[in-house]
């Protein structure tokens, strides 16, 4: 930048002045362009976090008016990105409800329909792929996860000599993932669902490391969802689209279950292996199962996480 201030002051000869001006302005122009270009990644940041979102309060500190603004912002952002006007709601836990899931291992045939129905319902990224449910194939007579395989791809299922065990977030009563979160971006709600505030998550992945079930998933890349497959029925703590760099996990389809409906994985299961309901209601399906079925297990119960996800067998 020296040459620029020198040029008008000394003024040796008109031709020299012009040439040096041209040269210095060319250099200056190139420098400015390079600076702008090198700041390009910073400009991209606006795509990830708007000022409005940056200044947003923690979920639990938001007033209804704040929440209304946030929902409007999310709705606007989703519409801009996907050309679909979503119906975003903030659904709170219902009174006198504690959710429990029960899965009949005798019935599961390993067809993975639940995996993909979940992806469709909860707007998970298709490329790279994020799936909340992992179906483990295990040889009969064991319950050893070390021997399991979730990449099975035979022509037909179920295969002889194997059973299938879908694993997803176990909605622990004592969730290790919540304890390790340094920013309180994830917590357990009173209906038993452990939720994530995607706007509060800093993406440190401590929870991913802490979860013994591999239930937490990180958006390593910008999630991509085809417009025509976007589910417009959304909840703030549920299936609204996520950003790069945040965690996500199964939330028992809060956008469905907190309005009284069954989760998507249950409705699609062709074998009727999945059961869901309110454990506080003695007449609910899950209450009947836990009180009358002979065998049921909690996965890795020795860890003391006390899952709300039970596996049972028909005898």
């Amino acid at each position: 930048m020296n040459s620029q201030s020198d040029a008008p002051g000394k003024a040796p000869a008109p031709s020299m002045r012009r040439r040096s001006f041209l040269r210095s302005s060319a250099i200056f122009g190139a420098g400015a362009a390079a600076l702008a270009a090198s700041l390009k990644p910073l400009m991209d940041l606006e795509k990830f976090t708007s000022t409005e979102e940056f200044l947003q309060k923690h979920y639990k500190e938001m007033s209804p008016a704040d929440m209304a603004k946030v929902l409007a912002r999310i709705s606007r952002e989703v519409e801009k990105q996907y050309d679909v006007r979503p119906h975003v709601r903030d659904l709170r836990p219902m009174d006198g409800v504690e959710f429990v899931y029960a899965l009949n291992l005798t019935r599961c045939i390993g067809c993975r329909k639940c995996v993909h129905a979940c992806v469709a319902e909860n707007n998970q990224s298709r490329s790279p792929e994020i799936q909340y449910i992992r179906v483990l194939k295990m040889p009969h007579g064991s319950l050893d996860i070390e021997k399991s395989d979730h990449n099975y791809d035979p022509e037909k299922v179920p295969e002889k000599g194997f059973f299938y065990m879908p694993v997803q977030c176990q909605q622990c009563e004592n969730p290790p993932c919540v304890k390790v979160c340094p920013v309180n971006a994830t917590w357990q709600e009173k209906d038993g669902i452990t939720v994530i505030d995607y706007d509060w998550c800093i993406g440190c992945r401590y929870c991913m490391a802490a979860c013994p079930y591999g239930a937490r998933h990180f958006n390593f890349a910008k999630p991509s969802i085809p417009k025509e497959r976007l589910n417009p029925e959304m909840a703030y703590l549920g299936n609204r689209p996520r950003k790069i760099g945040v965690m996500e996990k199964c939330h028992f389809c809060v956008q469905r279950t907190r309005t009284g409906r069954y989760p998507a994985c249950l409705e699609v299961c062709p074998a009727g292996a999945r059961k869901f309901g309110n454990i506080l209601d003695p007449e609910s399906e899950v209450s009947k199962i836990l009180s009358t079925k002979r065998v049921f297990i909690q996965l890795k119960e020795e860890l003391g996480t006390s899952p709300r996800f039970f596996y049972y067998f028909d005898v």
Partner: peptide
């Protein structure tokens, strides 16, 4: 028996 959905 039926064809399973694609693996992860």
């Amino acid at each position: 028996q039926r064809a399973p959905a694609p693996r992860p």
